[in-house]
Simulated assay, not measured.
Amino acid sequence: MEKRFIRMFSVIKKAGPYVVLLFILAWSILLGVSIGTVKVPVTDILRILFSHVTGTALSDSVDPMHETIVMAIRLPRVVLSGLVGASLAIAGAAFQGLLRNPLADPYTLGVSSGASVGAVVTVFFHLSLPVIGMYTLPVLSITASFITIFIVLFFARRVDRGMRVETIILTGVIFSSFLGALISLMIALTGDELRQIIGWLLGSVSMRGWEYVWIILPFFLFGALILLLHITELNAMSFGEEQAKHLGVNVGRKKMNVLIAGSILTGAAVAVSGTIGFVGLVIPHLIRILWGPDHRHLLPLSVLAGAGFLIIADLISRTIIAPSQLPIGVITALVGAPVFAVILMKQKLKTV
């Protein structure tokens, strides 16, 4: 009896964080769909979703306008913000585990800036690649993020053969500034595309629609799957590369796989929503504090928490000064910048 109780308690303890975060995510989705200029009752939302999932006729008690608002405007926006938040959070968790530093994330490593350059170039030159069509934007963003992370690592190695994490992050910040200057140059030269480019840079999931959900979804699934398949290697590399080698990990290949997957996730997220900073920094750090550094739980919990966080951030951005809207990147920066400062101070105290 005692062993059975201990086993049951262990299962509850492991499942608890998932239940909590799934509840928060479901609650944030319902809030995000319900709240707006026109408030849609939660009961109507559930009836509409049930009708569309099962293919049954919608109840006469539901206002047809509510159905349009839910299915054509708010639900795709909420799903898109959730996918973007999940992508940035799991990519940040993987980068932090790989580089063994809580300050590492797509934003500080310059990956987001590289992806932004790819997106802005696509918009600026009206690029559309044959065959892939609507996927031109994420493909070019991902390609630019690949190039950026490899250049950052190349220069970091030239500066410091030991490839210390501080050197990599500093190099990433420098390249982010350089890429920001390139984007500013394109903005200065642009004409009709100015509003679209500015919107991308500030970060937004407004008026994107289901098309953008289908754009990011395959890249999210592919990138997240790669990272989840490297959980054991990330756990090993969190103790240092030498220790990982002794455990039989092919460090060079696995590190490259993680960097590629993180770049795919970041590039796709930036392509559909613009540069949204600090999600990949704050969420994994919070999950690590609450539930530990084991990547078996850190990565999936970061997905759930990142999705819920960005849905709530988007809800705040469109309601806090309604009818006007704030860029979602403003909300994440207001939350993330103080957290970044606290983490930086803790890291400094550890080295003193």
Rank of each mutant, 00 (worst) to 15 (best):
F125S: 07
M71D: 08
P300C: 05
H246M: 12
P338Y: 12
L30T: 03
G292I: 08
I226V: 15
G203L: 14
I73L: 15
L281P: 12
L103Q: 07
S238E: 05
T319L: 09
I320H: 09
W214L: 15
F124Y: 14
V20L: 10
I24R: 00
H246T: 09
F219C: 14
A337L: 14
S204E: 08
V84F: 07
I149P: 02
V121G: 03
L179S: 00
F23H: 01
V120R: 08
V330M: 15
I287V: 15
L99S: 07
L225K: 01
D294W: 02
V19W: 00
L80N: 03
S263R: 00
V152M: 12
Y135D: 06
T68E: 14
S112Q: 13
I320F: 14
M8Q: 05
S176I: 02
K14I: 01
S273E: 07
I331G: 07
T37E: 09
F175P: 06
V53A: 14
L185M: 14
R77T: 08
L98Q: 03
D192Q: 03
V42R: 10
H230V: 10
V123L: 15
L21V: 00
I73P: 04
L225C: 14
I69A: 13
F95S: 06
V330E: 09
A115G: 15
G114M: 11
V62H: 04
H295V: 05
H285T: 09
L179V: 04
R7N: 10
A244I: 05
L88H: 06
G252T: 09
D60H: 07
S34K: 06
A86Y: 00
I29Q: 01
R7L: 14
V335Q: 06
L109K: 06
F222N: 06
L127A: 04
F124I: 07
Q96N: 10
I264Y: 02
D63Y: 08
F50E: 12
A156Q: 07
G336A: 13
Q243T: 11
Q325F: 13
T332L: 15
W214C: 10
H297E: 05
A26Q: 03
S317Q: 02
G32C: 13
E233Y: 05
W291E: 03
M237T: 03
V270Y: 00
L299A: 04
G172K: 02
I264V: 15
G267W: 05
I35Q: 04
D60F: 10
P284W: 10
S10V: 00
I132A: 10
L299Y: 05
E242T: 02
V258E: 01
A333H: 12
A305S: 08
S206V: 11
H246W: 03
G133P: 02
S10L: 07
T190R: 04
A261E: 03
M186L: 15
P284D: 11
L298R: 00
V342Y: 13
S184R: 04
I215V: 15
V70K: 08
L109I: 15
F9E: 08
V173R: 05
A271S: 15
L234V: 07
W27P: 00
W214T: 14
A305H: 00
G209V: 06
G252K: 12
M71Q: 08
F178W: 08
V258P: 05
F239C: 02
V270D: 03
R195V: 09
A26D: 01
T171R: 11
A269I: 08
S81Y: 00
A144N: 09
V139D: 05
F150S: 11
